[in-house]
Amino acid sequence: MVARIEISHLDKTYIRKPWLWGKAMLRPVLQDINLILPENRVLGLVGESGCGKSTLCKVVLGIEQATAGTVKINGQDIAGLSGTQWKPLRQYMQVVYQDPYASLDPRMNVRQLISEPLDIHGLHLQKKEREQFLKALLDSVGLAENYLDRYAHEFSGGQRQRIAIARALALEPQILIADEPVSALDVSVQAQILNLLKEIKEKRKLSVLFVTHDFAVARFLCDEIAVMYQGKIVEQAPSEELFAHPLHPYTRQLLSAVPSLGKKKQLLAPHAFWEESRNEWPCPFAPRCQNSLDVCQYTLPKIKEVYPGHQVCCALENKLSEEPL
């Protein structure tokens, strides 16, 4: 299978320079990330708020530079690409950002917002065709064609998110980087957009890097899921395998906390304070782990394949429960 995106040994450390003097502060955010996004696949990235999901997207998009490691898009290393070399990649790879309020220029109307990428990449359609195209695109994300002449600031949060999705799909990309694309949408619109993404994926062999914190959404759309914790991938498996045999204690903790209409109580956390993560533990999750043993204090866990395609990064790897939740 063709790898659309290949990430190997990627590290990203944010450097905060002091304002006047003093030592620069380093914040390692991604550590040794290895991921492959094949053609016609949806790779889900789940994990705690602040674990580095958006940063990973930004590195792939060339907005942030990797500190170490490589990112290849269609076999091409993106390190040191010039602006003109990026241009074809930008057409090929589109993005939906996490914050719909920041990602759309409020002074542009919907027609301009969606046609802009077409113009930049020189895809000139006849006026009538273009009109048809825009209307069909808007309709597919659940917005009426009358909205074409409205400005971005006139829209609600969920409507903006849908405009952003329409804009990303306008160029018929082969890769879509989607950072929490449906979390601002009500369930019915969300269902519509998820169906649409699935359909497009199958029709056009689209590959999607899909950041979400919603396991239900991930299960519906993703072929493969990677679970991140504090900048590391702690478990990765084909989606159904992950739900059938979640191994890593963090994955299990996340899955058991998924809210549903029937499970009311679990939504409220117990009266516990946040565990200060103790950096001296080799496994970042150890301080919060219910299974952690002495070995976790001196063993640096390595990611290992325990079943074909199912990798987990835990020092207790062969003592883990495999019961489905």
């Binding site: 789940v46 708020s49 929490e180 914190h213 906390a257 809210p259 939504l267 409220l268 946040w274």
Partner: peptide, 11 residues
Amino acid sequence: TTALDVTIQAQ
């Protein structure tokens, strides 16, 4: 809480 994962949301 749209951007929060389940455990933080619970807190």
